[in-house]
C-alpha cells in the first residue's frame, strides 16, 4: 500500500471522475446496436447502389473512429492514474483492472465486430467457452500456486 495516504483526497476525486467517464462511455458503446441492425437491413436490401455503399462506408468508418477514441481514452485514464499515483494502491489496481476489461470489450465490439444480435452463435459460444476455460486455467493456476507458496516456508 505505497503512498496511499497522501493521494486519498485527490484519489477520491479522480475516482469519481473515472467512474463518470466510464459511465458516459458505456451507453455510447451500446448505442451502436441500433445503427447496427439498421445497417444489416440496409445492406441486404440495397446492395449495389453507390449512395448506399457510401453511407455504409461512413457508418463503418465511424465505428472504427469511435472504437479508437474509446481505446485512447480508456488507455489514457489508467496511465494517468498510475503516473500521478492518484489512488491508493488497492484502488489503483482495481481501477486499471476494470478499465482494461472495458477496453477489451471495446476492442471486441469495434475492431473485431463481435456484436451479439448479429452474430453466429458459433463464434460467440467459442469466445464464451474460451473465457470459461481461460478463467479456470489462469485462476486455478493462481489459486494453486498461491496456496503452495504460502505453505512452503
Amino acid at each position: 500500500m505505497s503512498g496511499g495516504k497522501k493521494a486519498v483526497g485527490a484519489g477520491t476525486l479522480v475516482r469519481r471522475l473515472a467512474i463518470l467517464v466510464v459511465a458516459a462511455l458505456l451507453p455510447a458503446m451500446f448505442a451502436r446496436r441500433r445503427t447496427g441492425t439498421r445497417s444489416l437491413a440496409g445492406s441486404t436490401g440495397s446492395h449495389g447502389r453507390p449512395e448506399d455503399e457510401q453511407a455504409e462506408y461512413r457508418r463503418e468508418l465511424g465505428s472504427y473512429v469511435r472504437g479508437v477514441s474509446l481505446a485512447f481514452v480508456l488507455t489514457a485514464i489508467p496511465f494517468a492514474l498510475v503516473h500521478w499515483s492518484m489512488l491508493s494502491h488497492g484502488w489503483l489496481l482495481v481501477a486499471i483492472g476494470v478499465l482494461a476489461l472495458v477496453q477489451v470489450v471495446v476492442h471486441f465490439r469495434f475492431f473485431l465486430h463481435i456484436d451479439p444480435p448479429n452474430q453466429h452463435t458459433d463464434d460467440l459460444m467459442l469466445i464464451l467457452f474460451t473465457s470459461l476455460i481461460l478463467i479456470a486455467m489462469a485462476g486455478g493456476t493462481t489459486w494453486i500456486l498461491t496456496d503452495l507458496a504460502a505453505r512452503m516456508h
Partner: peptide
Amino acid sequence: SFAVWLHHFFTMGQN
C-alpha cells in the same frame, strides 16, 4: 476434465 488437474499432485503440499 478442465477442472481436475490438481489430482496429479495431491502430495505436493497444498491445503
